[in-house]
Design a protein around this nucleic acid. Sequence first.
DNA 1: AAACGAGGTTCCT
DNA 2: AGGAACCTCGTTT
Length: 209
Amino acid sequence: MADLFEVSKRVFPVRCAALSSADAGAGLTFRFGFHPSPFGEAIAVETAAGLAGLGWVDAKDRAGTAATTGKAAGGRDGALADMTRRWPRGLFVEDVARTARLVARAFDPGTWHAGPPLPVTLIGTPFEIEVWQALTLIPPGETTTYGVLAQRLGRPGGARAVGAAVGRNPVSFVVPCHRVVGASGALTGYHWGIGRKSAILAWEAQQTS
DNA sequence: AAACGAGGTTCCT
DNA sequence: AGGAACCTCGTTT
């Protein structure tokens, strides 16, 4: 089930375990917690195999939630719903003490290269996992485009498919979906808000300078 | 600057 | 199986 790989020194060192999303998270326990971050209050979700989800609470233009459920889905409830919707058959348990450790390290670049790689669980379709793994190879401070990424994956013309897969990345920030931009260089879209995408990119540009 | 069609994959019905 | 949705792209108005 899990194919493991490691990435180079330049990027955030993560050890990825890949899981199929076909069973919608059945049989898995997801521990979640809310934590402050440089980009707003974050929600982190982890399984025994590592960080499975990372998102933000105040995503006004977050796609889906309110529109598809008909319920007001703001605040922490909305952020949690965004995660439970990805793995509807999983068991979700609040465990802030547990998630705090992964979150603290994720947002402190000084600790990225200290100790073992950050464990990450990628739960998705084979194509999505292929795309998400490619994302982890983009170094901080750099960007690429959906078209280039598609080409790199041997699917020239699949830019839109790549864009859709990038948009479904559950582990934002750690799996750097924010480092993919449109062919013109414009920040074309971000699940957690374009403003946050530009804030993260600016933060990374400063970190790496 | 905005409208359009083709495009790959996924998730519905 | 068919159709719509998506963090696209290149061309055309």
